[in-house]
Simulated scan of single mutants.
Amino acid sequence: MAGTKGAETSARLVESMLELIQRHGYSGTGLNAVVEHAGAPKGSLYFHFPQGKEALGEQAVGLAAARFGTLLSDSALPSATPGEVVRHVIDVLAGMLTDSDFTLGCPVSVVTLEMGTHSQRLRDACADAFESWIAPLTEYLVAHGRPRPAARSTATAAVSMVEGAMIVSRAQRSAEPLRCAAETLATLLDQSTKAAS
């Protein structure tokens, strides 16, 4: 029972860290705010994360990576074209942005931009997160007939374009940059898949 309660507290802290990073950035997220947001006992943060904020941030990045990875895998149905997959994923992201009034961004890009030159631990966590999206998209494109080097290149470009579009959408307070990215990527992916087959 104690182990379950401890795991629940740890999970709430990570969840709160993730949400607060999305809203306020990594630097703008204080540990006291995380504890308060999580409704956790004051001493619980250093009990569960004795290495402090970087360890908690690393876990939050991992959670964000897993959630986006789930969105990708759930969207990549065998019957769906690569273009349909990209449109669905971006539609979900655009909905998240508009529903939050453009206050929620991608926590992985936020942490990368803020901490990439300051923390090897967080930089590695962000690199792993991006790779966890590029690798399955690469395999999906290979399964749809793309040669592996071209599939890897296309998957890297696709993830990069979506990340950039998220940032521009937040700046402009409009989902239009994401919609443009969706149409461009969908056309590119479906045309390249047809050419490969």
Rank of each mutant, 00 (worst) to 15 (best):
T103P: 04
G105D: 06
V142W: 08
G164K: 01
R170M: 12
G145H: 13
A150G: 04
T154V: 07
S109G: 06
F102A: 03
S109M: 06
V92F: 04
F130T: 14
E176Y: 10
A165L: 01
S132M: 14
A158K: 00
M115W: 07
F130L: 13
Q172W: 06
P136N: 12
S109V: 07
G164P: 03
C126K: 01
F130P: 02
Y140E: 13
D101S: 15
R146N: 05
E163W: 05
T112D: 06
T154I: 07
D101F: 08
R179G: 03
P136W: 11
A150S: 13
A129P: 08
S169A: 15
P149A: 10
S109R: 12
T184K: 06
R148N: 08
A151N: 03
M115F: 05
T138Y: 09
V162S: 00
R170Q: 08
A143S: 14
T112K: 03
A157F: 12
P149T: 13
P149M: 10
L185Y: 00
L122K: 09
L141G: 08
M166F: 04
I90R: 00
Q172A: 15
D99C: 05
E139G: 09
A151F: 02
C106V: 06
A155G: 04
R173L: 06
A143I: 07
P136V: 13
A175L: 01
S174T: 09
R146A: 11
R173Q: 15
D101R: 14
A125C: 14
H144F: 06
L97S: 12
T98H: 10
V162E: 00
A182K: 05
T184P: 01
D124W: 11
A143H: 08
V159I: 15
A157Q: 11
G145L: 09
M115S: 10
R148Q: 14
P177E: 02
G105N: 05
T117Y: 09
G116F: 03
L93E: 03
S160K: 02
L113I: 09
T98Y: 06
T103V: 14
H118L: 14
A181I: 00
E183Y: 03
G116T: 10
R148W: 11
S160C: 05
S132Y: 07
C126Y: 04
A129G: 11
V89I: 15
S119N: 10
P149E: 10
I134P: 02
L137I: 03
M96A: 13
Q172E: 12
S174G: 07
R152M: 07
R146S: 11
A171S: 10
L93M: 14
R123G: 15
P147F: 04
F102V: 08
R148M: 07
L104S: 02
P149D: 14
W133V: 05
A182G: 12
P149G: 10
A155Y: 01
L93F: 10
T184N: 10
R173D: 02
M96L: 14
S160L: 05
R123K: 15
H144G: 09
V162A: 00
L185P: 00
W133S: 02
R179S: 13
C180S: 11
M96P: 01
I90M: 02
M96D: 14
R152D: 02
A165S: 10
G95K: 02
H144D: 11
M115P: 05
A165G: 01
P107H: 10
A127W: 08
R173M: 11
E139W: 06
V110R: 01
S119H: 09
H144P: 03
A175N: 03
